[in-house]
C-alpha cells in the first residue's frame, strides 16, 4: 500500500504530462499536475525550513563543536523570514496603493531586496569566483600526457586555449591565406563546431534515449527504486 499509492500517483501524473504534450484536450490536465507539483513543493518547503531549524537548534542544544555558527544561521534565518514576510521598507504597489503590504517583497528599496543585493549577491559572486581557481587546479592535475588519448585531448585543449587568446592570432598569423584554416583561431572554431558539437550531440542523443527509457520504466511501474530500494 505504502508503495502502491505513490507509484500510481507517479504513473497517472506522468502519463497525463506525456499525453498533454501531444493531445490538446489533455492540456489542462498537464497544467493541473504542474500546479499540484508547485503546491506540493511549496508545502515541502515548510519541511525543509523545519529540518534546517531542527538541525541547528539541536546543535545549539547539545553545544556541539561550532554551535556558534548554528546560532548565526538561526539568527540570519529568522531575520530573513521576518523581513521577507513583514515586507519591511517595501514601497506600496502603485496599482493597489490603498492596500497595505501590496508591494512585492523583492521590490526595490525594501529590506529584503537590500539583503539580496548587498549580502546574497556579493557572497554568491565570491563563491562563483572560486571556480576560476578550481578550474586551474583541476586542469593542472588532470591534463597529464599519460597515454595516446590523453595526448590527443591535451593537444586539442591547447589549441582551443591558444585559439581563444591573442596568442593564437600572433603565433599563426603568418600562415598564408590558403592555409588560413590552420590558424589557431580558426582551428579552435573548427574544433568546437565540428568535433565538439558532434561529440556533444552523441552524448545528448544517448541522454535523450536514457531519459525516455527511464521515464518509461517509472511510468510502467517497473522501476520503483526512487521510492527506496528493496521490496
Amino acid at each position: 500500500m505504502r508503495r502502491m499509492v505513490p507509484m500510481w500517483i507517479a504513473i497517472i501524473a506522468g502519463f497525463a504530462m506525456l499525453l498533454s504534450a501531444f493531445f490538446p484536450m489533455t492540456e489542462s490536465l498537464g497544467e493541473t499536475f504542474g500546479d499540484v507539483f508547485n503546491v506540493v513543493a511549496a508545502i515541502a518547503f515548510i519541511l525543509g525550513a523545519g529540518s534546517l531549524a531542527k538541525v541547528n537548534l539541536a546543535k545549539v542544544s547539545r553545544r556541539d563543536p561550532g554551535w556558534g555558527f548554528a546560532v548565526v544561521t538561526l539568527i540570519c534565518f529568522t531575520i530573513t523570514i521576518v523581513v521577507g514576510l513583514g515586507k519591511f521598507g517595501v514601497p506600496q504597489n502603485p496599482q493597489f496603493a490603498a492596500l497595505p503590504w501590496s508591494g512585492e517583497k523583492e521590490a526595490e528599496g525594501g529590506a529584503f531586496a537590500w539583503i539580496y543585493a548587498y549580502a546574497l549577491v556579493p557572497i554568491t559572486a565570491t563563491m562563483f569566483a572560486l571556480l576560476a581557481f578550481y578550474v586551474a587546479s583541476a586542469a593542472f592535475r588532470a591534463f597529464r600526457a599519460k597515454n595516446l588519448e590523453a595526448i590527443l585531448l591535451l593537444s586539442t585543449a591547447f589549441i582551443i586555449l591558444l585559439g581563444r587568446t591573442f596568442a593564437g592570432v600572433v603565433l599563426t598569423g603568418w600562415l598564408p591565406d590558403w592555409a588560413s584554416g590552420l590558424r589557431l583561431e580558426n582551428l579552435s572554431v573548427y574544433i568546437m563546431q565540428v568535433f565538439n558539437t558532434a561529440g556533444n550531440r552523441a552524448i545528448i542523443i544517448g541522454i535523450a534515449l536514457g531519459v525516455s527509457a527511464t521515464s518509461l520504466r517509472i511510468l510502467l511501474g517497473i522501476d520503483r527504486s526512487w521510492m527506496g530500494s528493496g521490496d
Partner: peptide, 13 residues
C-alpha cells in the same frame, strides 16, 4: 556519463 547515469537504476537493480 549521461546515459550511464540514466541506466544506473536499471543496472543496479
Amino acid at each position: 556519463i549521461g546515459e550511464e547515469f540514466m541506466a544506473a537504476s536499471a543496472y543496479l537493480s
